[in-house]
Amino acid sequence: MLPPRPLAVSKGRGAVSNMQGRYEVNGREGFDDGWDAGIEPGDAPRFKTQVTDEVAKSILSRNASPDIPFKVSLNPYRGCEHGCIYCFARPTHSYLGLSPGLDFETRLFAKVNAAELLRRELAHPGYKPEHIAIGVNTDAYQPCEREMRLTRQVLEVLSECQHPVGMITKSSLIERDIDLLAPMAAKGQACAAITITTLDSEISRTLEPRAAAPARRLRTIRTLTEAGIPVSVSVAPIIPFVTEPEIERILEAARDAGAVSAHYVVLRLPFEVNPLFQQWLEAHFPERAQRVMNRVREMRGGKDYDSDWGKRMQGEGVWADLIRQRFTKTVERLGLGKLGSRFERLDTSQFRRPLVVPAATGKAGAKGAAQLDLF
């Protein structure tokens, strides 16, 4: 039998394979059949991004997790072209019969009716306003948002309703929507969190290949801050011996750029993220791959991952405690607050329910609905 095909890095992509999802019936295993003899080791075919329109049935997701500072979130897209190898949302592509690997980065789904669904949700008589976090599972400002503008449409609805929102992104495209976010922030209805995993552009280029460069994210923090939008920095994930040495430098750079609070998460490896991340390690950091995984297991009770609340975000053990101490002491020294408190202080008292007009009624129906609203 021929040996397994060596890992091949696709330029501009995070995953180094298109491994099958856990729900697929038939198993697949890559091997070298000799037909790729002319391809240089380490090369891989280019994968073109495909965006498919999706008519979603619902748009708001709710959680009861005690270790997350928000209960309601909204994601305009499935999959994410940023290609962050560590993304905990990768396994969700398995529900679609697609790979959490390269499919997650290249076969995207856009919820084209996101704004319409949100408007109907907010108009429901029983709806009680809670701050909504946007961009939790997949980045709401990934490249396709430039043309599709679904996040922009969602923000327009929230702005109209004076509904509080927290944006989470690693993209500079958020600057496009300052005209909506700044007035909301002035009323205590908007804040943003910018994720900075590393300041090393070389590491970032393979770790999160299509996200904004670290220096560009720092500039985004400054731009948002100068517009009056409170910005937090999310140092996530912290990867032992890869990004972990930079904790203090990231926090200092973010503070200097204007960030007012900070949060961190240690590397999480649920489901298919685990083998995908280990493939990435072998492809990009083979000399330290075993060392990294040994430290990850030390923070996870000897396992690759522990999903228990209270442990999944920050880990446990000596190394997890050292990271916690380093982060906490640096945050205190720099005068930074906590990300969660920033979300919790958003104002829900000014919320006003939107009008919802059936699409078939057209302009005449909209006029009639507006008249009815007066009574």
Rank of each mutant, 00 (worst) to 15 (best):
P3W: 03
P6C: 04
A8P: 05
A8K: 07
K11N: 05
N18L: 08
Q20M: 11
G21E: 08
R22W: 00
F31K: 07
D33A: 11
D33C: 12
D36N: 08
A44P: 02
R46A: 12
F47N: 03
V51L: 13
V51Q: 03
T52K: 13
T52S: 14
T52G: 00
E54R: 09
L60S: 08
I68L: 14
P69K: 10
F70R: 05
C84Y: 05
L96M: 15
S99F: 07
G101H: 06
E105H: 02
A114W: 01
E116F: 04
R120H: 09
Y127G: 05
I132L: 12
I134Y: 08
Y141V: 10
R146F: 06
R152D: 15
Q153G: 04
L158I: 05
C161V: 04
V165R: 09
T169L: 13
D177L: 10
L181C: 11
A185L: 10
Q189N: 07
C191F: 13
C191A: 14
A193D: 10
T195Y: 03
T195G: 04
A213M: 13
R216T: 15
L224C: 13
V231M: 07
S232I: 05
V233P: 11
I238C: 07
R255M: 00
A257M: 06
G258L: 09
V260C: 15
S261R: 02
H263R: 07
E272D: 01
P275Q: 09
L276S: 05
Q279V: 00
L281F: 00
F285G: 09
R291S: 15
R297Q: 15
K303E: 11
D308S: 15
R312Y: 12
E316L: 05
V318C: 06
Q325K: 11
R326P: 04
T330I: 02
E332P: 10
E332N: 14
R333H: 14
G337P: 02
K338H: 07
F343Y: 12
D347P: 02
R352D: 01
L355D: 02
P358D: 01
G362H: 02
A364C: 01
K367V: 13
Q371M: 15
L372N: 14
